[in-house]
Design a protein around this nucleic acid. Structure first.
Lengths: 183, 183, 183, 183
DNA sequence: TATGAATGAGCATTCATTCAT
DNA sequence: AATGAATGAATGCTCATTCAT
């Protein structure tokens, strides 16, 4: 039974693929895996995407877009913004399987020689700058940039660790508070 | 008959494979890659190892063994021990391609569902405990365990970041000093 | 509804397909190629033709029809008729890409086992007979049929060679004159 | 039951492939066709050849080599050489299915845009030069080069015609004699 | 008529692994 | 102990053709 509105199918593929990535990561995912998950035909997927990579990159930019929108909508006081940011990260590292953490790392590793490293460096800078701006507005005792970098890198450490071992919720909570105290 | 003792050949394989892993990571390495690097026959490698994974895991335990030996030999004052530890890590994140960082992560990701997560959790605990013991001996203002966890996770963040982007040496240096100050 | 009459669309398809065949030959042409060239829908072409082959065969018979009409209209003296025939062939072999020579051969090869060989044999006979009739009227020193066959086969050789290598204009001219002299 | 001397298998593949080419031409032959004809495994063929094209080109150069050797061994009087050449061609056009004529043309067509046309032009020149040298030694009334070109092109016409229609043996014989007379 | 999404058979190619030698 | 020829499952991808709309 073919036919259904094209964009719906595209979204369905992305949704199913997202599940696959959450389960299998990125490296181990083949076109066939996604095709099977979608229950469509071999050739069908190529009408929408030309490779696993393209699907993943589409998911990535969608996610990025969503995050940007969420970020823009917050207009709270800096400490709350910071705290909410940390809570969001906490949630993610405590249930990594519901997120695409593994897949994201595997993707980043797999493209590490192709994609200009500057892109990632730029992303890092954007993230720390935004965070530093928030910290700047708070009552801080250290250089906001240093603190921002520390927070971002620490969270990166949490994220990557969450993949290979279970993280203790209390520990994460205490670390997050510690981060708040030492800005 | 190029090898008198088969153990020599085994070591040669491990040595060459290690180079391959440093260059290509783990996920992208095929048996064929290692065979080519070793200049041995297709079937020959199976007399020593039954898979890429086994080779990598052998290298891992060798490395672990070495680290344990080095760790035991240090008998300095705690601040120096801490500082040297941080400097070693700094070196590694500044030249990740000479180390097996990428390969290690890729390996950990690929086995994340098979290997008991407790193993990694145990490793983390061992690392933080050892570090906490060192911090305990220093003049500290925070809970040594919290500080140790923070340090280990932050360094994990640095390591993983070093793979996908170039890290600024000054930044790393300043962060390391910051870690020392806030124990 | 861009086409009032479906026959207009049919002709358009034939015209565009003809361009495709001149450019890519026959073997390498896919339905998709023709569809793209026509700017029509995937399924649309099947309302007019059921395969690439049918399109090509339609073009072939159209061409044959045209040639027949041109042939009938000539009523010159035999030597001129012969000379004009040779000149037409010369032109074609000197710019094979503007004609369907490649496509024609590729088509003939691809159907060689299906199409009764007698059809081609009949075509050959028709061509040589017509030519022989012309030669008969000239001042000839050889059997007109032999000469006619020689001419047709030689031109066939020229045509096929023109596909895979550039032909020297002078050479072709001299050969054509040589053919005229030895009838 | 694997194992057999490698070069034997290579030869077997070439032999079987040659049959396939004689039956199906070149354009329609897939790796799978050859694999099936050889009765070997899917991956097996890639140990010897990396594409259908490579197999065909190998067969071509083998054939060329053979022809060269046969050519060198003849040391007869020019008229006999010429006659034998024509007889060989006659044989080939009278049983084209036992030869690779179709496959050769399809191959030449398929590579016509890649392979420098000069290569084919050079081949043509070599062939006509050699023939012209033979004619030069005979009692001739025309320019040997013109005659040589005529013969080569005429035979090319015969060859290509032999693919799509049955040639009459008497006709070919008479044409060959005619060629001999008019040098 | 016309569309184009969907299908599935078909082809090329790679690679871990086996096993006769 | 060592070799490397052979295997076959797995993957990516293309394309003619169908059919609901």
């Amino acid at each position: 039974m073919p036919y259904k509105k094209s964009s719906e199918k595209r979204e369905m593929i992305l949704r199913k693929a997202s599940e696959v990535f959450r389960t299998k990561g990125y490296a181990a995912v083949s076109m066939t895996d996604i095709i099977d998950a979608c229950g469509i035909s071999k050739g069908g997927i190529y009408l929408y995407f030309k490779s696993v990579r393209e699907i993943f990159e589409t998911l990535l930019s969608m996610q990025e877009q969503e995050e940007k929108e969420t970020a823009d909508s917050t207009a709270e006081d800096p400490l709350t913004v910071l705290w909410m940011y940390l809570q969001t990260q906490k949630e993610e590292v405590l249930s990594p399987k519901e997120h695409m953490v593994v897949a994201l790392y595997e993707y980043l590793f797999s493209v590490r020689n192709e994609i200009g490293e500057e892109i990632m460096a730029q992303r890092f800078k954007t993230a720390t700058d935004r965070l530093a701006a928030v910290i700047e507005e708070c009552d801080h005792k250290h250089d906001p940039v240093i603190s921002a970098q520390k927070i971002v890198l620490f969270i990166e450490g949490l994220r990557v660790s969450s993949i290979v071992m279970p993280l203790d919720e209390d520990m994460v909570e205490r670390q997050m508070r510690n981060l708040m105290e030492e800005i």
